[in-house]
Simulated assay, not measured.
Amino acid sequence: MMKQCVLLLSLVLSPSALAETTADVWKAKCASCHGIDGKAQTKMGQKESIGDMSRPDWQQARTDADIRKVIADGDPRNSKMKPFKDKLTPAQIDALVGLIRTLKAPSAP
């Protein structure tokens, strides 16, 4: 029994488990509007004129704290972006901020 608990705990705390969980949260809570790639080329993304998170200007214009606040509290400029502070843990929100920072478009050669 103890070995099973240790194994389960090591899987839960491993970086790959966290990355998978973050990707799952993104797919479940964010991708329907923002798209898997953050480009917002979805029906809702286009309807609501959601910004392309992969664009360098989008990334540079927002601090991690700005992104965290919108995820937690919703977007005052877009009522469709609901707050997630009661649905996600602070750690999940931080992980989503990290994921959003990886959505950078490739640089032109």
Score class of each variant (00 low, 15 high):
Leu13Ala: 03
Lys29Gly: 07
Lys104Pro: 02
Asp66Tyr: 02
Arg101Leu: 05
Ser32Phe: 14
Ala19Asn: 09
Pro76Glu: 13
Glu20Tyr: 13
Ile36Lys: 10
Arg101Gly: 07
Met2Ala: 13
Ala19His: 08
Thr21Gln: 05
Asp66Asn: 11
Asp73His: 13
Lys39Met: 09
Thr22Arg: 03
Ala72Lys: 10
Ser32Cys: 10
Leu103Arg: 00
Asp86Lys: 06
Trp26Leu: 08
Glu48Lys: 11
Gln60Lys: 11
Arg101Val: 00
Met44Asn: 12
Arg68His: 04
Pro56Leu: 13
Asp57Gln: 02
Gln92Ala: 08
Gly98Asp: 09
Asp57Asn: 05
Ala105Lys: 05
Phe84Ile: 03
Leu8Tyr: 02
Ala28Cys: 11
Ile67Cys: 00
Leu13Glu: 05
Asn78Arg: 01
Pro83Val: 10
Lys104Tyr: 04
Leu11Gln: 07
Leu88Lys: 09
Arg68Pro: 04
Lys82His: 14
Ala95Cys: 05
His34Gly: 04
Ala31His: 01
Pro83Thr: 09
Asp75Phe: 03
Pro106Trp: 07
Gly35Leu: 08
Ser10Arg: 10
Met81Thr: 00
Ile93Lys: 02
Arg101Phe: 01
Leu88Gln: 08
Leu7His: 02
Ala65Ser: 14
Thr42Ala: 15
Ala65Ile: 03
Pro56Met: 12
Lys104Arg: 13
Lys29Arg: 14
Ile93Cys: 01
Val6Lys: 11
Gly45Trp: 01
Met2His: 15
Asp94Leu: 08
Lys27Leu: 09
Lys69Arg: 13
Thr89Ala: 15
Pro90Trp: 07
Pro109Cys: 02
Leu96Met: 03
Pro15Met: 00
Pro56Gln: 12
Lys29Asn: 10
Met1Ala: 15
Pro90Phe: 08
Pro83Cys: 13
Gly35Met: 06
Asp75Arg: 01
Lys82Asp: 10
Lys85Ser: 05
Ser49Asn: 15
Leu18Lys: 02
Ala28Lys: 04
Lys43Cys: 10
Met53Leu: 15
Leu88Cys: 13
Arg68Gln: 10
Lys104Gln: 14
Ser10Ile: 03
Glu20Lys: 06
Ser54Arg: 06
Val70Tyr: 04
Ala19Trp: 00
Asp24Leu: 15
Lys3Pro: 10
Thr89Gly: 15
Leu8Glu: 06
Cys30Thr: 08
Lys69Pro: 01
Ala61Lys: 06
Thr89Leu: 15
Pro109His: 05
Lys104Phe: 10
Ser49Gly: 12
Arg101Lys: 15
Ala17Gly: 07
Arg68Cys: 07
Cys33Glu: 12
Val70Thr: 04
Gly35Thr: 06
Val25Ser: 06
Val12Lys: 09
Gly74Phe: 07
Ala91Asn: 12
Arg55Ile: 03
Gly98Arg: 05
Lys82Trp: 13
Thr63Ala: 12
Pro90His: 10
Lys39Asn: 12
Ala17Gln: 00
Val6Thr: 12
His34Trp: 02
Thr89Lys: 15
Thr42Pro: 11
Gln59Met: 11
Met1Gln: 15
Asp52Leu: 14
Pro76Ile: 12
Ala105Pro: 06
Leu99Ile: 04
Lys87Tyr: 08
Gln4Glu: 11
Asn78Pro: 03
Thr21His: 09
Lys27Cys: 08
Val6Phe: 10
Leu96Asp: 00
Ser107Ala: 10
Thr89Met: 14
Asp75Val: 09
Asp86Thr: 11
Ala95Gln: 02
Asp64Arg: 02
Arg68Trp: 00
Ser54Lys: 03
Ala31Asp: 02
Asp52Thr: 15
Ser14His: 03
Ala61His: 06
Asp57Pro: 05
Asp57Leu: 06
Trp58Ala: 01
Leu7Met: 07
